[in-house]
């Protein structure tokens, strides 16, 4: 089945097409959800709600952009909604004067990162840091967009990212990942 067949099937409420879409994209989307939530159970809840919305709102998918990208945006939105519901995004701090270079992390350390360690690194960060880091670094949103999504200032978004990278550098050192000489 091609992606177009799956979309058409989903628009016709075909359960087999819905299952095929779920089977194809759920492993990626669960990993996306898990990067935002600190608990596996929360990530599963986000996945269930997001896929239900995907099938429920499939008529609004205009088939111009990427289907996977559309699903991913729904998953990220659902994860943010869960975090908001849990008031996990309320503790946002702002740095007055900071030099981002101070908190930069050596890329050579990341190149050797194991998958489990990526999750462990994200899990050690407060929800605010983790969310901004994910939205900026992995999803590719701009600080202006992140500020709108999280209802924070652009400066707060920038501060959270810098603090997230600082925390990540510390954790990488603790885990034994150091820059190659």
């Amino acid at each position: 089945m091609t992606e177009q067949d799956l979309i058409t099937g989903c628009k016709g409420n075909d359960r087999r097409a819905q299952r095929a879409v779920y089977d194809r994209y759920s492993p990626v989307m669960l990993a996306v959800a898990r990067r935002y939530t600190a608990r596996d159970a929360d990530a599963e809840d986000v996945l269930v709600t997001a896929f239900f919305k995907v099938f429920d709102k499939i008529a609004s998918f205009n088939e111009q952009g990427s289907f996977e990208g559309w699903i991913r945006r729904i998953v990220v939105n659902e994860a943010l909604m869960l975090l908001r519901k849990k008031h996990a995004l309320k503790q946002a701090s702002e740095l007055d004067d900071v030099n981002p270079a101070t908190f930069s992390v050596p890329a050579s350390a990341t190149a050797r990162l194991a998958e489990a360690d990526i999750m462990a690194l994200l899990d050690t960060m407060p929800a605010g840091y983790r969310t901004v880091f994910n939205l900026y670094v992995v999803e590719g949103y701009k600080h202006r967009e992140i500020a709108e999504m999280l209802e924070i200032s652009i400066n707060t978004s920038k501060s959270q990212l810098i603090l997230a990278k600082k925390r990540m550098r510390e954790q990488l050192e603790k885990m034994g990942y150091t820059a190659s000489p």
């Binding site: 492993p27 669960l30 990993a31 996945l47 890329a107 990341t110 990162l113 992995v138 990278k165």
Partner: peptide, 17 residues
């Protein structure tokens, strides 16, 4: 470079529900 590398690794993550 760190962000690029992290992004590459994180987008490749898979989890079985």
């Amino acid at each position: 470079p760190f962000e690029k590398e992290f992004r590459r690794q994180a987008t490749g993550l898979r989890r079985t529900p």
